[in-house]
């Protein structure tokens, strides 16, 4: 096995980390100065992406080409709902956040039901769900007023702990740790990876394959909803299309981070560094003065290249 293949098997996140590091260096070169501050700033932006990408990672891990195309619309919906209902009042957080997360979970459940019981391919099912959610957003958006953001959310999304560590980065890293623990220490985590590798074998070992898959979709919905709440706070409001960029970005983060697109292997820390790498890349390109067109080309080629080399089942 080549060095690449060996390293990626043992430490699947390694290339994302190395890539992020070099991208940070590159950014420093373009910006004319290398600073930890720039890394922290980028990490802040990347954390929002990472949180949402974790959900995509879970769905992709269920295997058989699963992908969640409803994430962008769930983000946008949650952004609208949370800013609208909280309306600047911190106390409203107590009930609005659980409700919004609950809605995210519900959408995830609907996705799961379409895929598992109606046997609709995940692409179509989540695509259709995305349409439905977009409709909901439009209906909700009809009677809209100005945005006032809850101060707690503002703190969470913009502030730093002890002035140094952005809260959102800590949240994202916390999520990474939780998920990593989940995959190593819980039945769900192991079962999810088993299902993604070989669903037949998983069911013969007694795993409830449908339940595991459903939970993955539900969790993706919850993460997307949470992400939406935070993103709205960070950005200062909600607007149509807020979540759209996250579709490609979540898939890219997941893939670059070492999670297998064919399912069966999830790398939470890789997804985080994949997000970091992606945002560093975008920032570096911006700072280097690369036009938006060039940025898109580089991002697109990146995904294809990563897939090209990561494909461990090349045709013989």
């Amino acid at each position: 096995m080549s060095i690449y293949a060996r390293s990626i098997t043992k430490y699947p996140w390694i290339w994302a980390v190395i890539g992020a590091f070099f991208m940070w260096l590159l950014l420093g070169i373009f910006a004319g100065s290398l600073s930890l501050e720039s890394l922290v700033t980028v990490a802040t932006t990347a954390s929002f992406l990472a949180i949402v990408a974790m959900g995509q990672m879970l769905v992709i891990t269920t295997g058989e080409g699963a992908i969640d195309l409803s994430i962008p619309s769930i983000i946008t919906l949650s952004a609208f709902l949370s800013t609208g209902f909280i309306n600047g009042n911190n106390f409203n957080l107590l009930y609005v956040i659980p409700i919004v997360l609950g809605i995210g979970a519900f959408i995830g459940l609907l996705n799961a039901l379409s895929v598992l019981y109606l046997k609709i391919p995940p692409i179509i099912a989540t695509l259709g769900m995305g349409y439905i959610v977009t409709t909901a957003i439009l209906l909700y958006n009809k009677g809209f007023r100005a945005f006032t953001l809850a101060s707690i959310l503002l703190h969470l999304s913009r502030d730093r702990l002890f002035g140094a560590f952005p809260v959102i980065v800590l949240l994202a890293l916390g999520l990474v740790v939780l998920l990593q623990l989940m995959f190593v220490y819980t039945k769900f985590g192991k079962s999810l990876m088993a299902v993604g590798q070989n669903a037949e074998a998983a069911s013969l070992v007694g795993i409830n394959v449908n339940l595991i898959r459903a939970i993955a979709y539900i969790m993706s919905g919850v993460f997307a909803a949470f992400g939406g709440i935070m993103i709205a706070a960070r950005v200062g409001g909600a607007f149509l299309g807020l979540g759209d960029p996250y579709l490609m970005q979540t898939v890219a983060s997941v893939v670059v981070g070492g999670t297998l697109i064919s399912g069966g292997k999830a790398v939470p820390i890789g997804t985080f560094f994949g997000s970091l790498f992606l945002i560093l890349l975008v920032t570096a390109m911006q700072v280097a003065g690369m036009k938006i067109g060039g940025q898109y080309i580089v991002t697109g080629l990146l995904i294809i290249l990563v897939l090209f080399f990561a494909a461990n089942r090349a045709r013989q």
Binding site: M248, A252, I292, G293, G294, Q295, Y296, I297, V298, T299, G300, L301, L302, I303, I304, L307
Partner: peptide
């Protein structure tokens, strides 16, 4: 991925 290359 290719869609981004085209758009770019």
């Amino acid at each position: 991925g290719m869609s981004f290359v085209w758009t770019g």
